Simulated scan of single mutants.
Amino acid sequence: MGADLYRGRISEDGKMAGLRVRPPLSVGFILADNFTLSAFSLFIDFLRLAADEGDRSRRILCRWSIMSSRQTMAQASCGVAIGRDSGFLDPKDFDYIVVVGGLLHAGPQMDAETNAYLAAAAKAGVTLVGLCTGSFILCRAGLMKGRRSCVSWYHYQDFLAEFPDERVIADRMFFVDGNRITCSGGAGTADLASFLIERHLGRAIAQKARHVLLLDRARSGSEAQPHPPSNDEIVGDERVRRALLLMEQHVADPLPIAELASRLSISPRQLERLFQSVMGVRPASHYRLLRLRYARWLLDHTDLSITEIALDAGFADCAHFSRKFKALHGFTPTDARGRERQPLSDDAPSMATMPPPDAHLAAMRIFE
């Protein structure tokens, strides 16, 4: 559907002679306060490249509008400000209304008028898309009841804490649940944009946009996010949460335990006691398990060599990594590579809701 309706001469102003005005793909954008610029820019640049021949940027096959209840500019989390094209338009004019989320803990992301507009769009049957933390905004507006939300592994614990009764996926790029689509953000935004363009305009046009952006292939929504999924246990002690976050941020270059303690303004002995009390293991043991879990995920989901994986997981040499890996799993990294990889399906339970047997000792995504 769509692209074949636009065969014919394209005038210099981008209009099609004798054909309908509405393009095959029309998207409305709503930007949250402190929205993520990369998610917005990737998506809209895919539309731009798909909308016209070459790199001419005329809005022929695609149309988009940035809408807001306020006339002030929306500021991204990086400080870049973007103005609106209009107030809220008739939601039925759009195939999709895309909500671009951003920082979670920097005040309200949407006002009451915006939430009311999203509710009206949902009632009209328009597909709502949550990019990055846009899934949180849709959930807060009560628009994800009975739906599954796809979030980044980075925000999985945040989602569980705020929406304990909602269904969440944190191990794939994006998820289509009827007329709700949620995307983990980051580079996954490009994959979702490519998917929607192919759906409306065809594979060739989606491929052209990818090639101009130097993206070699489109990943399906069910492909795994490039990081191990999160466990669903929430740690109550703030100092342990901060230590876990520091560990996760320094997987390839592990921090000495003394350095971890220093950053928390406590002694190494205090940190040892805290971990024994809260986690049931010493901090060094937990840190190693975190790195081994990350290595296992890389083995299962990437084509990196075992040596590269050892270095990425913070091990000085491959032999040391192999010994520790076998001690934990009972088989070597080479054996793990030989095991059959199970593809993800949209009906399969999320890995984030099915932690491995040793998940109580494995890495957890924890936030301050």
Rank of each mutant, 00 (worst) to 15 (best):
E238V: 08
D346T: 14
Q109L: 02
R180Y: 05
R20E: 13
L37F: 13
A121H: 08
A218L: 01
D232W: 12
I234V: 11
E272G: 05
P343S: 05
V212K: 04
N179C: 01
A327G: 10
R7L: 07
G83A: 15
L244D: 10
Q225W: 13
S285P: 02
I197A: 01
D237H: 15
S220M: 01
F43C: 01
C318P: 00
L196C: 02
I137T: 04
D347I: 06
R9M: 13
G101N: 08
M67H: 09
N34P: 00
L19C: 03
P24H: 14
G178H: 04
E166Y: 07
L290H: 02
D177Q: 01
S350M: 09
R203I: 00
G185N: 04
T353G: 00
V240H: 14
A362Q: 15
F321S: 12
E162M: 03
A295F: 09
R22M: 01
A39D: 15
R269E: 15
G236M: 07
R291W: 11
M144V: 11
L328C: 09
R291K: 06
A124G: 03
L328Q: 14
L214W: 14
L299Y: 09
P254F: 14
S41Q: 10
A224W: 09
A106S: 10
R296T: 03
T36C: 12
S220R: 06
E223K: 12
F321L: 12
Q157S: 12
A363H: 03
C318R: 15
D85P: 07
R203H: 12
F321K: 11
S86W: 01
R241V: 11
R59A: 10
P333D: 06
L61C: 08
N231R: 10
Y294P: 00
I82Q: 05
G178L: 03
R140D: 08
L104G: 06
I44V: 15
F367D: 10
I82A: 01
M144T: 14
L192G: 09
R20D: 10
V99R: 05
S305F: 02
I30F: 11
E53S: 10
P355Q: 08
A206E: 08
L103N: 08
H360A: 13
